[in-house]
């Protein structure tokens, strides 16, 4: 094991995959000589050259088109869309085109592309750089969607995404950007579609992903001191969803709290709550609870962010309510 920062794990994954496979190329705004707006692509231009690492104009729609078409004719394109919010400009090419190619061609074409994109939630980025739009993409047949919560998963999932024959949306968290974690020295792929259980427990299941997972884990620690033994399921992949891990955990604990930074209506929590209601209703000992951001545009100043996003205490409260204890506050 070695210790890496989250961004460095992403950088290493790209470097290793580009070294391993010449068909892997990287495109995006400022990804070349500048090394990326948040240095995720640092060093790659010098190492792999301008043919395979290309700065692009600010044309998100065409970037996804480049990745789609390039990946249909023999490349594996990693395309960086600077912020998840900018998906709105590229949505046609991703949703109507990349996601449909395989089905429309009767399985004759594949699109092994990765769209890497940053979620600015929790980092004072405001209403157009901070949105958590993961359920938009997880709603589209043909796309895979992953969101790592730590450096090891970031590296292993990105490597798996590059090798996957489908378009994969790879979401990165700005709030985790400089976080550190242990990463295996040897090559490790994290399978897409498999959740992790970073903490086992028998009293309540907390499901979370991406930037919210560290708060879920902190909440579990806090609950431990209150005599509540929480299990944390870190989804890692939203599409495909690891239903069995979620259902297995809820069958064990009988209680479910879902935590996400996206707004509540039609968010990932609704999907997971419905899944559990359909398939483990008899195991539930308490209503499912969702701990989410508020249904408002993302604010920028810290005090409003604190009020807007689900915090560790909110998760603790929801879990205590679920196990039938009074909230801590």
């Amino acid at each position: 094991m070695k210790e890496l920062k989250y961004w460095r794990a992403i950088n290493e994954a790209m470097a290793e995959e580009m070294e391993r496979d010449e068909s892997v190329v990287l495109i995006g705004e400022d990804v070349g000589r500048p090394g990326g707006p948040y240095i995720a692509t640092k060093g790659l231009y010098d190492r792999f050259g301008p043919t395979r690492v290309r700065d692009t104009p600010i044309s998100e729609s065409t970037l996804i088109g480049l990745a789609t078409g390039g990946s249909m004719v023999g490349l594996r394109v990693i395309v960086e869309i600077m912020f998840l919010d900018f998906l709105t400009l590229a949505a046609d090419q991703l949703v109507n085109h990349a996601a449909k190619v395989r089905s429309v061609s009767g399985g004759a074409f594949e699109v092994p592309m990765v769209m890497r994109t940053m979620c600015g939630a929790g980092k004072n980025t405001g209403p157009q750089h901070g949105q958590s739009l993961e359920s938009w993409v997880a709603h589209i047949p043909g796309l895979k969607v992953v969101w790592p919560s730590n450096p090891a998963d970031a590296k292993g999932l990105l490597k798996a995404a590059v090798r996957d024959p489908n378009p994969v949306v790879f979401i990165e968290s700005l709030q985790l950007w400089a976080s550190r974690g242990e990463v295996p020295e040897e090559e490790t792929l994290v399978p897409i579609g498999a959740a992790a259980v970073p903490r086992e427990g028998g009293d309540v299941t907390i499901v979370s992903w991406g930037g919210a997972t560290p708060r879920a884990l902190e909440a579990a620690e806090a609950l431990d001191s209150r005599g509540v033994d929480a299990e944390v399921v870190d989804l890692r992949s939203l599409a495909p969803l690891d239903e069995e891990t979620i259902l297995g955990s809820v069958a064990k604990t009988g209680r479910l709290v879902v935590v996400h930074d996206a707004v509540r209506p039609f968010g990932g929590g609704a999907e997971i709550a419905a899944l559990v209601a359909e398939r483990r209703f008899d195991h539930l000992k308490a209503p499912v609870r969702r701990v989410t951001s508020q249904f408002a545009p993302v604010p920028f100043p810290p005090q409003l962010e604190d009020a807007y996003y689900p915090g560790t205490n909110d998760v603790v409260d929801a879990c205590l309510a679920s196990v039938g204890e009074a909230a801590a506050r």
């Binding site: 729609s61 480049l66 390039g70 004719v73």
Partner: peptide, 11 residues
Amino acid sequence: FGMAIGAAFGA
């Protein structure tokens, strides 16, 4: 335009 430009890029 998207897929075409991508195929040209690939070529």
